[in-house]
Design a protein around this nucleic acid. Structure first.
Lengths: 197, 197
DNA sequence: CGATCGACCATAACGCCGTTATGACAGGAT
DNA sequence: ATCCTGTCATAACGGCGTTATGGTCGATCG
């Protein structure tokens, strides 16, 4: 084989993530990626099989980055503070790379649909972190014990929903969305989930 | 003018919404729409100016339909029940036309970005309904009095976030997402927002 | 009432796109 | 030394959004 260049696959994913971040999904094209990665469009087909598959790989990469970003918050003595910190990190990631974030959740709409098993796995790994944090909060007694996945799902839905609305520019229904919507939303959730008294 | 056919604009929007609903965004193309609407691609440019503008019109149409759908829930004697009914109607709309719903919120990612003033207005009109319901719930004393827009924003974020996760297929982290995530999420929000007791 | 004008849209072309066919080329296996 | 196989470059195909051009009418006005 001709120097199989095992990095070509990796390079294509990273170039795609960069182009997506900086110029948006409209700039994603096979020819552009091949040029920027210093190869030809055929490499894209030998390594991925087509453009949609590459986008899926980029989505998986995005979830991996989200995972890393959220994993950066070190567990402290106060699990509840950790939960809030994780939420802040999550929002920070989405705002830092909105195009990628939107494609991650909109790929169901963009490509053809439905995440494959592989992407679901990566996404679920990221979600698993949240479940773990929730479990620790329960262990600490800051919220009542119940199905951690269900509780984590509620937090995720609230967080994701807020972030999407903020990214869409629709959050300007209020002056300070973060203070008037996100913060009370999480606080209210924590209050209702809190110990009986 | 040659029978200005004032319906061409309307027909293009409706055909686009239909194609989007039934075959997804990948099937949206100027040539396809022109063919289905019984005209040529030029009509698209005289009426909209280009493909992105047409997509924006479809997004506005989607928000209008969402508005109508949610407006169908008649105010009853129990505003709190009305709020829940509105949430059910909202989810129903999103699940009934997932492609359109995803484009509505993902158009920031699809086209080039940012909703224009016009779409924001339509979106905000839909949001206004929710604010009104929240105000009536406050009047009834079922939740504490505070900024209705901020409270409505929290509900919207929670609802939208849940719906997005459900549409992405990511909600299968639990067996029955609606019962384990959406329902408790709204209930918890209502509980925390409820009167001091 | 007929000439004129201008909005509407059909046709055809341009440069892009994703994708495919084809083939050159470079090792590993034989 | 031979073939075989995975890798990638070149070039082509159909379809895309968009634009240029021109024909065709309804409205307007002398």
């Amino acid at each position: 084989m001709p120097a199989p260049d095992p990095d070509v696959r990796r390079r294509l994913i990273e170039v795609a993530a960069d182009v997506l971040s900086e110029e948006g999904p409209g700039a994603l094209s096979a020819r552009r990626l091949a040029r920027d990665a210093g190869t030809s469009t055929m490499a894209l087909y030998t390594h991925f099989g087509g453009m949609p598959a590459l986008v899926r790989a980029v989505v998986a990469e995005g979830f991996a980055r989200l995972y890393d970003r959220v994993a950066e918050v070190e567990p402290s003595a106060d699990p509840l503070a950790d939960l809030v910190a994780a939420a802040v990190a999550y929002r920070g990631y989405a705002l830092a790379d909105p195009h990628l974030y939107l494609v991650m959740f909109g790929s169901a709409s963009l490509g053809e649909y439905r995440l494959t098993e592989t992407e679901l796995e990566v996404g679920l790994a990221a979600f698993g972190q949240l479940v773990a944090v929730v479990e620790r909060v329960m262990d600490a007694g800051a919220i009542r014990r119940s199905d951690p996945a269900a509780v984590a799902g509620q937090f995720w839905a609230a967080l994701h929903g807020y972030v999407m609305i903020e990214l869409s520019g629709l959050s300007h229904v209020v002056e300070d969305p973060e203070a008037q919507i996100l913060q009370p939303l999480l606080t209210n959730l924590l209050t209702a989930l809190g110990p009986p008294a």
